[in-house]
Amino acid sequence: MNLTPTESERLTVFAAAEFARRNLREGIPLSHPEAVAYLTDEAMLMARTDLPFSEVRERAGRLLTSAQVEPGVPSMISYIMLELPTLAGSKLLTIYTPIAETADGPVPGEVIALTEAETVFEPSGLIDLEVVNTGDRDIQVRSMTHFFEVNKALAFDRAAAYGHKLAINAGGGTRFEPGIPKVVTLTPFVGERFVHGQAGLVNGPLDDPDTRARAFERACQRGYIQDES
């Protein structure tokens, strides 16, 4: 049996629609692709039974309710466009809002803000430092970087930055352009306050006096700071 691309696609839609019908029989809410396949297959079946075009459009828009699909699916299907096989040839059918939304239904991708502000960083531990990029290209510092160990081309009070990181959301970053001073806010590391890797200046507990002394010694030797003051 040789099938045209259109016939192959029709079989795929039918298979997905049968999957959706099984879920409906079992009381399982339909996902977005299942709902689309079900509505498409039913509309094409109606067209094959020679129902008038207007009646197909009317019935197809009443096949599913919001209770039969997963939360958020109605808002994801604003319309469906498909070619109906009729005796007069193929006709384009557009079904607008095929699944009625509920007034309090979720919207996929919607951002719901908190009703009350939350403190991300304790204000008492924040410090502001002016940083200047003395290099010839942009430098970006990520949120979890120990600011004491950032690129040596950044000039600032490294002693004050010891044990601190940028006070920004996790995963974020701050870019420093050459020659342009920028004031950043730093917050202390919390938890066990161990730092490993990065520029290799600490590699141990931040609050251990010996570790701190070695970190400053390495920083001076490698040109991150000129002295320990």
Rank of each mutant, 00 (worst) to 15 (best):
A170T: 10
R222M: 03
R158I: 01
V131W: 00
H196D: 09
A103F: 09
Y96E: 09
D104K: 07
T174R: 13
E83W: 10
V69A: 06
E149N: 06
D157N: 14
T174K: 15
N151Q: 06
R137H: 15
D210A: 12
S8E: 15
I139P: 00
L84E: 03
E26Q: 15
P85H: 12
V56R: 05
L30V: 00
N133Q: 08
D208S: 00
Y38T: 07
F53M: 13
I99C: 11
G171Q: 06
Q68D: 07
T12D: 08
F216T: 00
L166Y: 08
T49E: 15
E228G: 14
P209M: 07
R59M: 00
S31R: 04
C220S: 03
M81W: 02
V36F: 09
E118L: 13
S124A: 10
A167E: 12
G172S: 07
D128V: 04
E83Y: 08
R25H: 09
Y38N: 01
G197W: 14
F189L: 05
I168A: 13
L82T: 14
A213M: 08
P106T: 06
R175C: 08
N133P: 10
F14T: 12
P108I: 08
I180Y: 02
I225C: 06
P188A: 03
V111I: 13
I180R: 11
T94I: 09
L206F: 00
F176Y: 08
E130K: 12
A17M: 02
N151I: 04
T40P: 05
A67H: 07
S8R: 15
G172A: 07
D157M: 08
N203E: 15
I28V: 12
L201G: 02
L51F: 09
G172T: 03
M81T: 12
L84C: 01
L126P: 09
A159S: 07
L206H: 00
R222Q: 01
S31D: 05
M144T: 12
G197R: 13
R158G: 00
R175W: 03
F147E: 04
D104F: 09
E55Q: 14
T102S: 14
P29R: 11
I139K: 12
A219E: 06
A199E: 15
A213E: 15
S8Q: 14
T65R: 15
V190E: 11
E101I: 04
A161S: 11
Q198W: 13
F14D: 14
R214W: 02
L63K: 02
F189W: 14
E101N: 08
L166I: 11
G173R: 10
E58A: 09
L82M: 15
A113R: 10
E122F: 05
A215V: 05
V141F: 11
L11Q: 06
A155K: 14
T86Y: 01
G179N: 10
E228N: 15
A117G: 12
E110G: 01
